[in-house]
């Protein structure tokens, strides 16, 4: 029962993340949608897979390693892309920009 809930939650979050990448106005808000929804949806689906499958415990541990690596790597890459996009010259559509105050 709980694996069906986790799987549906993961799928719905993935779908909202894709819609967010399509709908948001600039790069940084798209990064919000991509990072959070990909990490949450992947964690939900992988936990559901661990509960569903019938396999020895080592294989389940391998899936846990996959979930841990997703949770470590995804925010790191998003941080690097955000900094690169700012240095590349994409102006954010924001109300207040303290990063430009210190670097111009």
């Amino acid at each position: 029962m709980i694996e069906i809930i986790l799987m549906l939650f993961g799928g719905a979050v993935m779908l909202f993340g894709a819609l967010g990448i399509l709908r948001f106005p600039d790069v940084y808000t798209r990064l919000h949608a991509a990072t959070k929804c990909d990490t949450g949806g992947a964690m939900g689906i992988i936990l559901a897979l661990i509960l569903i499958m019938d396999a020895p415990a080592v294989v389940r541990a391998k899936f846990l390693v996959l979930a841990f690596l997703i949770a470590m790597i995804n925010p790191m890459v998003s941080h690097a892309i955000a900094r690169g996009a700012y240095r590349y010259g994409v102006k954010p559509k924001v109300v207040v920009d303290m990063y430009a105050w210190d670097n111009s």
């Binding site: 993935m14 993340g17 991509a34 992947a42 992988i46 995804n74 690169g84």
Partner: peptide
């Protein structure tokens, strides 16, 4: 712009992993 494409490619790769 270029960063949009990079963001979308990273999201696609995560989905391919899953």
């Amino acid at each position: 712009t270029l960063p949009d494409r990079v963001v979308a490619l990273n999201a696609i790769t995560t989905k391919v992993v899953v």
